[in-house]
Nucleic acid binder design. Structure first.
Lengths: 333, 333
DNA sequence: CTGAAAGCGCTTACAG
DNA sequence: CTGAAAGCGCTTACAG
C-alpha cells in the first residue's frame, strides 16, 4: 500500500485518529475538519487497506460460501440470494466451488483455506463417517441434509415431508402412475429422504410402488431430459413425474413436449427447489421446497448467531412451500 | 482469534518464527520440529488469521469479481471460470453483484467497497462520460466494451467483427430475411457495435437492412422468447435470427418451436457468448464470441500484470470463435 | 535450521 | 471533538 492513513493525517494536519474517524464515520467530526481530511484523502488517493482494519477488529466481515458449482442454476440463484442478504449485514461473500467432491468439502471444514469468519456450505458429498471426524474450529453452517453430527449447524428442508406433499398434490389431481425422476442418484441422503417421501405419499393413497417408475437420472436438465425420453418409451402410461429437483423437472417437461405429449394434460410435472426459473418456464413449474432466499436467510442468520457467540449450533428444518403452477394445474401461471 | 501463533510456539517450545515456517512451508523445517509444531497446532486448534498475514504481506490475494447478476447464466458461467482460474493462482474470489446499475459500477471503481487487491468487472452500465471521471487508484480490469478511457484495462471481444462473422455464416446458408433479436436494448455500446456488425454483413452481401427485422428485446431467455413470438407473427417470412446473446437465442428457439416451425429448417438461429448451455440445447446453438473461459483467463492475466506492477493497463480484443451447431447447420451436434 | 525483534496499517481505550 | 500511544497476529530481514 502506497499511501496510508498516517500520510493523510500529516497532509491534513490532523491526527491519525481523526482520519480514522472520518473514514469510518463512527464518531462525529467537525465539518471543516472532515472536509480537510476528505480533501487530503482525494489528493493522495488514499484507500483503506482492509487487512489492517480486519486484524485490528479481529474479524474479516467476510463469509465463505462453498457450493458444488455456479453453473448449476439452483446454486447460482442461491449464491445470489446469499450475496444480497449478506450485503445487508455488511458482509462480503467469498465464493468457493467444490465440484461436489468430498475431499474438497472436507478441506473446507478443515479450515486450511478459509479466509473468512465463517463458512456456509451446501454440502452434497459428505458421508455419515465424516461426522465423526474432527469438527471445524470455526463457525460453519451446512445447507442441505445433515451429514455431520450434532455439533455442526445445519439448515435444510424436511425433504421427506416436502416430497410427500408434492406427490400428494399429484395424486389429488387424479394421477396414479407417478414416476420419480432422479432415483438412485444425487446426494445419497437427500435422495433417500426424497424417495421416502414419494413412497409415503403413494402408501398413504394405497398406490403400489412400481420400481419401473423409479427412474434413475442425474439431477440436472440434461439428465432429466434424457432419462424422461427413455422412461416415456419404456413406460408410456406415466401420467405424472415428480423430479428430484427443478432442473431435472424442466428437462422432463422438454422431453415430454418432444414426444408430442402435453404438460400437464398427458403428464403432470412437479419438481423440488422452488427455483425462480420454474416461474418463468412454460408452463410454469409446480415445485416444492423452501424458497432459495429463505434458505439463504436462514443460513446467514444461523452463521451470525455463531459469530455472535451463541453456544449451540442450531440444526433445524426450514418450512417448505408447495407452489402450484401450470405444469400440474394446467393454468396459465 | 482465540489461539495465536505465539500460543502454538509456547506450547511446542519453539519460536514463533518456527511455527510460521511450518505453517507456510516456505522454509524447510527439521522433521521432528515440524511434527512437534503440528501436534501443538492440532492440540490447540490453531488456524492462521488471514488478515494478519495479509497486512504483513501487503496484499489480500483476493480479487473482487463484479457482475450484473449470478442468475443470468452467462455471468454464472463466467464467474465459475474466474473462480477456477483464480484458484490456480492461489487467489480467492469475492463476488459482488451490481444489478446492472451504473451507480453500483461507479461505487466499485470508486474503491469504497473493495476488499481485494484488484477488481474484475463486467461492466454494462458505464457511460462514455464516466471515462472522464476519476480513475480508480487500484488495479481494475473491465470485461466487455470500453466504457472508460485509455487508463483502465479492458478485455473484450471485437463485437462488430464477431457479429459480422456470425451473420455472414447465416447468409452463407442462403438466409436473407435475418432478424436481429435484441436491437435497441442491452448495454448501449455493446448493442451499437453488434448492430453495426449485423449491418456490415448484410451490406457486404447486398441485402437491404429492414427495420422490421430489428427486433427490440431484452437480452435474456424470457424476453427473447416473447419478442420472437411477436416477430414471427408480424414478419412470418423470417428465415434466420441472430440474437444479441445466447440466452435470448435459446428463448428464440423455444418460441420458434412453439409456433410449430423447425430450427433450422424454417428459421436458423445463432447467438453470442459461446455459453456452454448452447452446446447442450436441442438443437445445439450456433454461437459466436470468445469462450467464457478465455474471457476469464484474459481478465485474470491482465489483472495479474497490473498487480505485478506493469506500467500500462492493456486494452485488447479477444479473438472470437464461430461455433457452428445444429441451430444453423441442421446437424445433430 | 532457529531466535529475538521490528513493523505491516489500522482502531481504540485513555486522556484531554 | 481531537491527540499520542498501544497493540491486533502475522512475516521477515538480521543474526547466529
Amino acid at each position: 500500500m502506497a499511501v496510508t492513513m498516517r500520510d493523510v493525517a500529516q497532509h491534513a494536519g490532523v491526527s491519525q485518529r481523526t482520519v480514522s474517524n472520518v473514514v469510518t464515520g463512527s464518531v462525529p467530526v467537525r465539518p471543516e475538519t472532515r472536509a480537510k481530511v476528505e480533501a487530503s484523502i482525494r489528493a493522495l488517493g488514499y484507500r483503506t487497506f482492509a487487512p489492517a482494519r480486519q486484524l485490528r477488529q479481529g474479524r474479516t466481515s467476510t463469509v465463505a460460501l462453498a457450493l458444488p458449482s455456479l453453473t448449476e442454476p439452483y446454486f447460482a440463484e442461491l449464491a445470489q440470494c446469499v450475496i444480497d442478504r449478506a450485503a445487508g449485514d455488511d458482509l462480503r461473500v467469498l465464493v468457493v466451488t467444490t465440484r461436489s467432491r468430498r475431499e474438497n468439502e472436507l478441506a473446507i471444514l478443515g479450515g486450511d483455506q478459509v479466509f473468512a469468519d465463517g463458512v456456509i456450505m451446501s454440502s452434497v458429498a459428505l458421508t455419515p463417517e465424516d461426522s465423526s471426524s474432527r469438527h471445524p474450529t470455526f463457525p460453519v453452517v451446512l445447507i442441505g441434509d445433515r451429514g455431520l453430527g450434532e455439533k455442526v449447524a445445519h439448515v435444510g428442508p424436511d425433504n421427506r415431508l416436502a416430497v410427500h406433499d408434492a406427490v400428494q398434490h399429484l395424486i389429488g389431481l387424479g394421477r396414479h402412475r407417478i414416476a420419480l425422476l432422479g432415483a438412485h442418484n444425487g446426494p445419497a441422503l437427500t435422495c433417500e429422504l426424497r424417495t421416502a417421501g414419494y413412497v409415503d405419499a403413494l402408501d398413504e393413497a394405497g398406490i403400489d410402488v412400481d420400481p419401473a417408475l423409479m427412474i434413475s437420472s442425474g439431477w440436472n436438465f440434461d439428465a432429466g431430459l434424457q432419462a424422461t425420453l427413455g422412461a416415456l418409451e419404456r413406460v408410456p402410461a406415466v401420467d405424472a413425474i415428480f423430479a428430484m429437483n427443478d432442473s431435472a423437472a424442466i428437462g422432463a417437461m422438454k422431453a415430454i413436449a418432444r414426444t408430442g405429449r402435453s404438460v400437464p394434460d398427458d403428464v403432470a410435472v412437479a419438481g423440488f427447489d422452488n427455483m425462480s426459473e420454474g416461474a418463468r418456464s412454460t408452463p410454469g413449474l409446480t415445485s416444492v421446497g423452501p424458497l432459495p432466499d429463505e434458505v439463504a436467510a436462514a443460513a446467514l442468520r444461523e452463521l451470525r448467531a455463531q459469530l455472535d457467540g451463541d453456544a449451540q449450533p442450531a440444526r433445524y428444518l426450514l418450512p417448505h412451500r408447495l407452489v402450484e403452477r401450470g405444469s400440474t394445474t394446467g393454468e396459465r401461471s
